[in-house]
């Protein structure tokens, strides 16, 4: 059995991904390497076609790598699991379940008793600021509220890391800004490790400790940028703008 090559909560080690297609194999990722430390907030950024979503799906265990391994706490990832809480762009809520029942879904699979499930779910719903909406169905919620449910549901099973794939891609700018603040609050309250995929430079500089820049086709890591700014960060800050420019240049 091989070993995790370097220290880190998540270690992405030599990932290649090749898809078969009608017109022959297509390389999506080539030799992607980086590590995420415990408690870190890392954004993966890149132009469309750079393989961000493919990389997310490999880390999520929804797709297997052609070459290489993703390690979580020293164990190779070989499928989806509750050690990674996932939040998707299109929310992925279960429309037939109320907010409360969406959040309890993962807890039911754990075999927790009903009392404990409900208590945990209510805590999570409070955490994302949706108390009062426990009995609403997803169709009754706005995009921002739906994604709050998505986050509460992912956190309910107490995962090691939170994996987010362009989670705020479908909400308006104002809601996005509020969700950023709330996500950072949740992050500092729960001490989770967060891996956040986005194509939005502004979003990456707002949120991340470090930004992994994927470029090219097949995608590989072009650069890892430390965002050395105190939180809360202000967009009007010169340093903020400098980081934005740096990332923009890196993507191109």
């Amino acid at each position: 059995m091989s070993q995790q090559p370097t220290d880190g909560k998540i270690v992405v080690d030599g990932i290649d991904k090749r898809f078969r297609s009608e017109s022959g194999p297509v390389d999506a990722l080539r030799d992607v390497n980086f590590a995420v430390e415990e408690g870190e907030f890392v954004c993966i950024i890149g132009a469309s076609g750079a393989g961000k979503t493919t990389l997310f799906r490999i880390i999520a265990g929804l797709e297997s790598a052609t070459e290489g391994t993703v390690w979580l706490d020293g164990e190779p990832i070989d499928g989806p699991g509750t050690d990674r809480g996932m939040v998707f762009q299109e929310y992925g809520l279960f429309p037939w379940r109320t907010v409360l029942k969406n959040v309890t879904f993962g807890l039911e699979e754990r075999g927790l008793d009903k009392q404990a499930r409900l208590q945990r779910a209510r805590e999570m719903i409070d955490l994302v600021g949706l108390d009062g909406f426990e009995d609403s169905y997803p169709k009754e919620l706005s995009g921002g509220m739906k994604q709050r449910v998505g986050i509460a549901r992912a956190l309910a099973v107490d995962p090691e890391i939170l994996l987010m794939d362009e989670p705020f891609g479908s909400v308006d700018a104002q809601t996005k800004q509020r969700l950023h603040e709330e996500l950072l609050d949740i992050w500092s309250a729960t001490n989770k490790t967060v891996l956040f995929v986005t194509h939005d430079v502004d979003e990456a500089v707002t949120l991340a400790d470090r930004v992994v820049v994927l470029t090219g086709s097949p995608g590989s890591v072009h650069e890892v940028v430390d965002i050395d700014l105190a939180r809360p960060r202000s967009r009007t800050d010169d340093a903020f703008a400098d980081y934005e420019q740096q990332l923009r240049d890196a993507i191109e």
């Binding site: 989806p80 998707f88 992925g92 279960f94 099973v157």
Partner: peptide, 13 residues
């Protein structure tokens, strides 16, 4: 597929 993937990520195996 995505609905099933969400469920898998929440522990349905």
């Amino acid at each position: 597929q995505s609905t099933k993937e969400v469920a898998a990520s929440l522990g349905v195996d």
